[in-house]
Every structure is written in C-alpha cells, then in structure tokens.
Write a protein that binds this DNA or RNA. Structure first.
Lengths: 207, 207
DNA sequence: CCAGGTTTTCGCCTATCGGGCGAAAACGTG
DNA sequence: CACGTTTTCGCCCGATAGGCGAAAACCTGG
C-alpha cells in the first residue's frame, strides 16, 4: 500500500506510509498509529520489524533514520483507503520515493522466506480456505507456482493445517467440491528447518 | 564483550558498546566506529543488524532509540580490550545495564538460528580447523552438544566445507591425526531449508 | 440418466537429508 | 608390539520434499 506524495521532495511519486516517532511510543506503536490514518489497523493480520534504513542521503534535507516494518493484510479483506492511497502489486511497483523500493524488496523477500519456514500463511489466508485458494496465495506471494499437492502435504505434516470438515461450493464449471481447511494457530510459529544442530531429544520424544 | 559503566545511571553495571549516530554515517558505520574505540574492528568477522529497541522507558532520561547489532569475532583471535572492557560467556552474563541483557539474548538466538541454516560458522572458526574443533565451536554457540559425525556430513553435503588436505598435529594423548577443513566461502550464504515453496528447477538441475 | 469434462484428493514411488552406531583407521605410549 | 585414544568412515534407519497418476466427486449436454 503506497500513497502518492503531493509535495516536494519527490512529488507525484509513491511512498510507504510512515512518520515521526512520538516521545511516548515505541516504533511498532508508532507505525500502527501512522498506518491508522490510512487503514483500519485492526485489519492488519501481522506486523514485524524489517530493518533500519539509515544511509545519510536516503532523504533530502536533514538526516532521517527509518525503521521499516512488514505489515500483512488478509486476502479476503479490502480495507478502504484514502484517495491519495492505493494498493500496488509488489511485482510492478510505480515510481517510488526515496529508498522505498528497496524497502519493498526487502519486505517481499522476508515474506517469501517466512512463508517457507513458518505458519505465516495464516496472515494472508482467510479463516477458512480451500487448498487451491491457498496455493494461489502462496504462488502470488512467492512469485512462482507451487504444487497444491505438496503444499497441503507439507503444511499438514508440520501440523499447521487442519480440515474444518466443511466443503466449499463448487464453481460454474463443476469439479469435485474442495474441502475447507484452516490454520491450526494464528500466532507466529516457526518450524525449525535443520535438526543438525539440535539436541536429539525433541524429535525423539515423538517416537 | 561488555564494558563496565563508571557513571550513573547504572554505574558498575555492564553494558554493550555503542553511542550516538553521527550525521554523516549510517548505523553500521556508526557501530563500527563506536566499536573501534574498544577493539580492532578489522577483527570483526561478521556484523549484522539485529533489531531496533525503542521502548520509551528503556533508558532513563530523554528517549533513546537503539539499533542493535550482532558482531562476531573468530575463535582464534583475542583482541586486546581496554581495562574497563571484558569478555563474558553469554550463558553467564553479569548484571547488565538497561535492556542490554534482552539484546544479548536476541543476539544469541539469532546466532544459533543462523548457524543452522547458513554458513555463518566461517565467522567463528579459524581459516583451517579440525572437525572436532568445529564441533566444540558449534556446541558452545548453540548451547548443547552436537555430533561431530553429523556436523561434518551436513555441512559437507551443503557444500560449505572443504578438506585442505593437511592434517593437524596430534595431541599429547595420541589418537588419529585429524584432517583439516576450511569453509568454501567466507561470505554469508544461506542454504534454504524448505523446498516446498521453491521452483523445482534448482534441485532438479543436479540430476 | 449416462457419457464426458473438470477439479480436487489421495496413494504410491523416489530421492535426499538428518541421526545413530559401531567398525576401522591412524596415531602415541609403555 | 599390545593397548588406549582420537578421528574417520560405512551402513543403517526414519522423516521429509517432490512427482505422478489414479480415483473421487461434482457439473453439463445430449
């Protein structure tokens, strides 16, 4: 979500929402406050620190140090935004102000990484969804096709996915009705990849 | 590496090196400058941003926003430090100032995680080392015993480790002389854990 | 109401990876 | 030269990612 700058510098270019840090808030509180001017912050399904951008010349004039955040909104929500604000596909960003394009790239990279080794999909998916809908989400977020078969198997094996029992209504072209799933937990949970460097106990407790 | 504060607030408590950001430097340049007052910064084998700590009351007096860094030094170097500065095992920290203990915990956690899915070991190990020496390093950094067999196999399979051909001199108690290894690359390199969400091409190119 | 098209789901097979164990190799020492 | 020590290697197992095709479950048109 970007807003179009009206004034110089970088008038007419698109920039990330943000603003100065208040004396009584930490950076996360601050970004939520800044964001509340654009969208309903309750619709943010996930917020996390990204990185600090602090190059001396990143903005004209006096030095500005920015703490960038990654914020996610569920795919089934479409928050109303002001007229100077709009959503853009991260693969086709318009001309951006300052170093905001680099920030977007970092955010996208972080999202792709965390989709792979956490249950962060819950922040993108609706409460209930079909596997093929989830596949579309993952494909869009990652930028390449993923297999629905594999996606379901892997997420299930990690204990992240759970069937609701219900099925989705079939589309106009027929086909077998898809079962509905949900994420077991809607809180961030990492599934450690490598067990090399982990005491054997944890894994062996199961068996 | 902590230094003992001489003045209030938190006099006599141990704190992380750091200081104000100059107008002409970014945060990494700044922390390297700050650190140069304590140790030879050329001996830093790795530096990376950790997180921003910005709670309003984290330090007494006017608000201070800190960008924390993780910095590593190779195990075979022992930089000289001033008299008010000392090394402490991260498992047994002394009384620390402000929120510096939380920062240390985060750094330790980050190190453990990155040791597992990157080649970050190069930043801790000497240029050449035996597998059992590397095992000790990993065990210390991770906080639990790792198997030398497994460590060698996994790091080798990932293409991170490479034998030098030479062998280390044997110890006083005999035993088979250990072969020397080195890291193939001394630049940060991540080995993606999960292939679920990756285009099949990469893996299939090998076969 | 049955044949054909469509979409989803499931089972089976394979390759790779982490993990454990014990034997073998290669050294010192008494 | 037998023995203790340390390292290295081979062999095994279980878990996981990935692919493929058959089967299931629905719609529509004839």
């Amino acid at each position: 979500m970007l807003w179009e700058r009206a004034r110089e510098p970088h008038a007419r270019r698109w920039s990330l929402p943000g603003g100065g840090l208040g004396d009584d808030e930490d950076v996360e509180t601050s970004i939520r406050r800044q964001l509340a001017e654009k969208v309903d912050v309750r619709q943010l399904s996930h917020v996390e620190q990204l990185a600090v951008f602090s190059a001396p010349g990143r903005v004209p004039g006096p030095r500005v140090v920015a703490t960038a955040f990654l914020g996610l909104v569920r795919s089934d929500t479409d928050p109303v935004v002001p007229s100077d604000t709009a959503w853009h596909p991260v693969d086709a960003l318009p001309a951006t102000a300052f170093d905001h394009e680099a920030i977007c790239r970092r955010a996208r990279h972080r999202l792709a990484a965390k989709l792979s080794y956490t249950n962060l999909g819950f922040a993108l998916a609706p409460p209930e969804f079909t596997i093929s809908a989830l596949r579309s989400l993952y494909s869009a977020a990652l930028g390449y096709r993923v297999s629905a078969t594999n996606l379901q198997r892997v997420l299930s094996r990690r204990g992240l996915l759970e069937p609701t029992g219900a099925v989705a209504p079939v589309g106009p072209s027929g086909g077998r009705p898809a079962a509905l799933f949900r994420f077991v937990s809607r809180e961030m949970r990492v599934t450690d990849p490598f067990a090399v460097l982990r005491p054997p106990s944890r894994r062996n407790l199961g068996t």
